[in-house]
């Protein structure tokens, strides 16, 4: 269900676009900000609120990598898998994270605490390997550092 707050935010977005479609992606992000992810029902509701066909909303909601279409954990780990970090041995860190969390890329830990996702270059290539946990960027990663970082996300 879209909350009143969601609707207000979407309305604000509508005010600055000449077509209702222009607010579509932002509207999906509004839902995700609140709920953590965007369900099928959310897509239907957003489309209805904007007066757009559901297919238009679905087409967009499945295109973008930052719109999550499955439920995610309390914290989302985005581990950079692009080339600069790779040269800095980020793949070893992925192996570490996977075994530490007991999940594969794209999965969520059983306790719902972490979701592990790959990310394209996070623009901190000189400080690699890097990852984002929620909104925080963590650089110069090592296995030990990762362990410490994870502790700070309950």
């Amino acid at each position: 269900m879209l909350t009143d707050h969601d609707k207000q935010e979407i309305q604000a977005e509508l005010a600055r676009t000449p077509s209702r479609r222009g607010a579509l992606i932002e509207a999906l992000r509004v839902v995700q900000r609140r709920a953590g992810w965007v369900s099928n029902a959310d897509v239907v509701e957003v489309a209805a609120f904007l007066g757009l066909p559901v297919s238009q909303a679905e087409d967009v909601a499945t295109f973008y990598s930052m719109i999550f279409r499955q439920e995610v954990g309390r914290h989302v780990i985005l581990l950079c898998d692009s080339v600069s970090c790779w040269v800095n041995r980020a793949d070893a860190l992925l192996t570490h994270l996977r075994s530490r969390l007991g999940i594969r890329l794209g999965q969520t830990t059983a306790d719902g605490r972490f979701t592990l996702l790959p990310a394209a270059c996070l623009g901190a290539c000189d400080r690699g390997p890097v990852m984002k946990v929620d909104e925080d960027l963590h650089t110069h990663l090592t296995a030990e550092k990762i362990d410490r970082i994870l502790e700070s996300y309950p």
């Binding site: 066909p53 559901v54 297919s55 238009q56 679905e58 087409d59 499945t62 295109f63 973008y64 990598s65």
Partner: peptide, 9 residues
């Protein structure tokens, strides 16, 4: 038509 589109990437 309003119910056919292209999904994914």
């Amino acid at each position: 038509g309003r119910d056919v589109g292209v999904q994914g990437c």
